[in-house]
């Protein structure tokens, strides 16, 4: 227990990389989910087919494999030697987290858009809204309310996925904490080191949930609904 502050400091050294990976991964996930989700609803068969290949490809192959693949493939195919530096590897990690979770998010967006009652679209057509206005002003504001709870789960999955970046030696929290295992003097306190680490992840997960619940309230109020109260405050299910 004497070395508590040493452990804490070491884990905090990895916190920035974990936060960047989580934040960057979430941002990329949102963008990809919206694009791919709308792509799945495209009237063009070619677009739907291509997006479907992306979604099933990334959902079906393992995230760890994707990390290793991108870590070598980006340098070889595109001449981007990102796997040489810690920042570059973090960037690869963010890209893989975004692509992987974006594939799950696309299905969430598709489902939410399809759950908006058809009359809403018909009303917008009757009022002479352009297709972009229909989507942006009528459909999406209602669909977003449906999307936020499953996205909450997805983002927590993503947060947990940042620990996998240690496989490609990104200096994130788990990597930094696990380095302590090699120090014989600390081996007796291994339980404490991992426990602090787990608590850090737990706190980050709760933070994600708090922010998402707040956004849910805002989004619901915007379309004149109130959020049904849920007893569960934390993760509600994995995006399987």
């Amino acid at each position: 227990m004497d070395n508590f502050s040493v452990y804490l400091e070491r884990i905090l050294e990895g916190l920035p990389a974990t936060l960047w990976a989580t934040g960057g991964g979430i941002a990329l996930t949102i963008v990809i989910s919206l694009l791919a989700g709308l792509g799945l609803l495209s009237p063009s068969r070619i677009v739907r087919g291509l997006v479907r290949v992306y979604v099933e490809g990334f959902r079906g192959s393992s995230e760890v494999v994707q990390l290793f693949f991108f870590a070598v493939a980006l340098a070889i195919f595109f001449g981007l030697p990102w796997n040489q530096t810690a920042q570059g590897l973090l960037l690869i990690g963010i890209i893989v987290l975004g692509l992987n979770h974006g594939a799950y998010g696309a299905e969430i967006v598709r489902g939410a858009v399809q759950s908006v009652p058809k009359e809403q679209l018909e009303g917008a057509v009757a009022l002479n809204f352009t297709p972009v206005q229909r989507m942006w002003r009528i459909i999406l504001p209602q669909a977003v309310v449906e999307m936020l709870p499953p996205f909450n789960n997805l983002f927590i999955q993503l947060l947990k996925g940042t620990a996998l970046l240690s496989f490609i030696t990104v200096p994130e929290m788990f990597q930094k904490a696990d380095e302590l295992r090699a120090v014989p003097a600390f081996s007796r306190d291994l339980w404490l080191i991992y426990l602090i680490l787990l608590v850090f992840y737990m706190v980050l997960a709760v933070l994600i949930t708090v922010v998402m619940r707040w956004l849910e309230t805002l989004a619901a109020r915007r379309v004149g609904r109130s959020v049904p109260s849920r007893e569960r405050a934390l993760a509600r299910g994995a995006a399987a």
Partner: peptide
């Protein structure tokens, strides 16, 4: 249950394996 669901499996594996 909430704790296990909110934390990475990889860390849990290491906890079980090394502790």
């Amino acid at each position: 249950i909430e704790f296990v669901r909110s934390t990475p499996l990889l860390v849990q594996v290491f906890f079980l394996y090394w502790v």
